[in-house]
Simulated assay, not measured.
Amino acid sequence: MPTITFGMIAKNEEKFLPACLESVKDIVDEIIVVDTGSTDKTVQIAESYGAKVIHHKWQLNMSKARDEYIKAATKEWILSLDADERFAKQDVPKIKSIIEQHPNVMGFFFVKRDYGFAGVKRSSDDPYEESQPFDCWMEVREIRLFKNDKRLHYTHHVHTNLIPSIQKLKGVVADVDGLPIHHFRQQLTSEQKAAKRKLYLQMLEMEVIENPTDPSAYGHLAVEYGPQDPNSIKNYEKAVELIKKNKESGKNPWSYHFAIVGQLGMIYMEQKKLDKAKELFKLAAELNSTNPQDYSSLGEIEYFQKDYKNAHAHFIKARDLGHKNSAYINARLNALSKELGLNQIYF
């Protein structure tokens, strides 16, 4: 059976840490907690689970902290969660079998359920008691299980990622379906939210200075400012400029770059700058031809501009790629079918 190191960073997480460690303790062979300056019982709780605690001086960079558990890990694989995340009890035994089924993979994408955000609606047959208090959640794919290869390292100050490091090694990453990570965000006061935002902006501004040619750095900063802030548009546009340059020079983008282009496209749509939005959704589709949202957005703009033939083609593409809102897609296709004189009904 493969062996696993569980690694995490933590600071003042006494409220969430026990449930997190409890969810993985029976499947991992080693626990490493990188503490960045806790003043509560975080360290004592970690040690009660047999964890090796590494005291790391905080440097306004989460990647540097996360890299510490990669350096210290002694087992074949590394599994990582944050303190306010956990696996469901019924899913934990499946983790090692997933590794055995994919011997040539360097890492695995898990779906993280961010509870408390709009997005996926809970179905009546959802099997997880963790989801029961919530009507919906946002889903994010992240690499959380990966080989203990000392050449791997995290990138970015806040929104840490292993993808660039794995790509450099030409490693393969597989998707894990039906085994979500449950993320319970802390309920912060308005003062705590403001302090956290200020800290993140400071970290992200530093990241842009240190990595001025990285589109992701500008994209992360744009998201943190928020779509109504002029600084957000400025940073999105800089990110897209760099993505275009990378495309022209033959550099392969990664998935977050597709999202950056689409996010700026949505902002332009809301501002009624339809030609600019259209250009961006075309670019997003060129970078990643498998995202139905980009094609439906193109179709929506063309529908509004009365370019019915292209709108019809793009809505068909969105449907064929499995757009989640099939009722909306079919309604648009039926309207376009009527405009184009097509004798076809979509349902």
Rank of each mutant, 00 (worst) to 15 (best):
E270T: 07
E286R: 03
M269A: 04
F304A: 07
K306L: 06
E270C: 00
A284H: 02
A277D: 13
E302S: 03
K309H: 09
N310W: 05
A311G: 01
K309V: 06
K306E: 08
D294S: 15
L280Q: 08
S296G: 11
E286N: 04
A284E: 02
P292F: 01
E286I: 01
H314W: 09
K273N: 13
D294A: 15
M269Y: 10
K273C: 11
A311F: 05
H312Q: 08
I301H: 04
G299F: 03
N288Q: 07
N288V: 02
K306N: 07
H314K: 09
L298A: 06
L298Y: 01
K306H: 06
K272W: 12
H312R: 06
N291C: 11
I301C: 04
S289T: 04
F304K: 10
K306G: 02
H312G: 02
P292A: 10
F304M: 08
Y303R: 03
Y295I: 15
K276I: 07
Q305T: 07
D275L: 12
L298K: 05
N310M: 12
Q293I: 15
Y308Q: 00
K282C: 06
A285W: 01
L283K: 01
E279H: 12
F281A: 07
A285C: 03
D294I: 01
G299E: 01
N288I: 02
K273Y: 11
D294R: 14
F281G: 04
T290C: 01
N291T: 06
F281P: 06
Q271T: 03
K309C: 00
I301S: 05
L298M: 13
Y303T: 07
A311D: 00
K273P: 02
K306V: 02
S297H: 14
E300T: 15
A311Y: 02
P292L: 08
K282R: 10
E302A: 06
A313V: 10
H314A: 08
L274K: 11
F281Y: 08
K309F: 07
K278I: 10
F315M: 04
E300K: 14
Q293D: 15
K278S: 15
T290M: 07
K278N: 14
F315A: 04
F281R: 05
E279G: 06
S289A: 05
E286C: 00
S296L: 13
N310S: 13
D294C: 13
K276D: 15
H314F: 11
M269E: 12
F315P: 02
S296W: 14
K272N: 14
P292Q: 10
S296Y: 15
K282E: 04
F281Q: 05
L298R: 07
S296T: 15
A285F: 00
K309L: 10
A277I: 11
N291H: 10
A285Q: 00
K278C: 09
A313I: 08
F304D: 09
E270Q: 12
F304N: 11
K309R: 10
F304L: 09
A311P: 03
K273V: 12
